[in-house]
Computed example of a mutant assay.
Amino acid sequence: MNNQLANGHLPRSPYTAGQAVPVRELHAGHREEILQHLLQLGEDDRRLRFGTQTPDEVIHHYVERLDFNRDAIFGVFDLNLKLIGMAHLAYLPEVKGKAHAAEFGVSVLPEGRSQGIGTALLQRSAVHSRNTNIQTLFVHCLANNKAMMHLAQKAGMSVEYAYGDADAYLKLLPANPGTIVEEAAKEQWADMDYALKENLKRSNQAWWWFLGRPGLAP
């Protein structure tokens, strides 16, 4: 491999492009939204996300096996409460003498790209990792996954290439009161954002139902 593990740390103000995107932590009740999100990925996007050809049945199995008590799943919803971006922060088994690590995987639907969603998901995952005693954030993907490599390099990750694959690492500083408050504030903001979108969606549905009632059309 070409590069060595980065000796640097998480920048103090990383991923500024993603700060305006509310990212919500998902739970088991979101399993159907996660499934529908992944099923909407095209063949190439599935290959880049999972590193191989991924038919529907594999995605169903992946979603069924998600453990929300062990790992962390984050999502970004659009105005219609459609899950347009999600990240899976998978905690890797602890190895004595090595830094505790978590692997980051992300997917964004075409209509949500170039809006800072991937950056926001990575930022949210990095803060959560720090607050749960993770020392190294890790990304494994195909070397030709240009979007993921751009995201990783923008975050200051050290990237290593070998045999068509790429590994990116980011060493994380320990948690502090600021990161704990930051995560709590972001979660509260994301919950408020979701509630507002939910109310807006209900209002729009009621309005269109009203307009569609028999006898009210001009």
Rank of each mutant, 00 (worst) to 15 (best):
S129W: 13
I180C: 10
N204E: 14
K154P: 00
L92I: 07
H100L: 13
L151V: 08
S114T: 00
P110V: 05
V63R: 07
E64P: 10
L109H: 03
H37E: 01
A6K: 01
M149W: 00
V139W: 00
R46E: 04
N144H: 13
A152W: 00
E43R: 07
A20G: 06
A166G: 07
T54V: 12
P22G: 09
R31C: 08
G212A: 09
V108A: 10
F138S: 01
V108E: 02
L173D: 13
A143P: 06
N69E: 15
L26E: 12
I117G: 06
G215Q: 06
G178Y: 15
F210A: 11
M192W: 15
L39A: 05
D71G: 11
A120I: 02
F68P: 03
A120G: 04
D191I: 15
P22W: 09
Y161C: 02
G97I: 09
W209T: 10
K146A: 14
L173M: 10
E33S: 14
D67H: 08
K186C: 15
R49V: 01
L211G: 06
S158D: 07
E160W: 03
L66I: 11
E64Y: 08
R70M: 12
C141E: 00
S114H: 08
A175Y: 12
D71S: 13
P14L: 12
F50N: 09
S203Y: 15
M148E: 06
V159Y: 00
P55I: 13
V76H: 06
M157Q: 03
D165N: 14
F104G: 03
D78L: 04
V106Y: 00
G29C: 04
H100T: 12
R124F: 03
F74W: 04
E187H: 13
L216H: 08
A168H: 04
P22L: 07
N133V: 09
F104N: 05
L26N: 10
C141K: 04
A143Q: 07
N2C: 04
Q40L: 11
T136H: 04
K171G: 08
A28F: 14
G112H: 06
A143S: 11
A195Q: 15
V127R: 13
V139C: 02
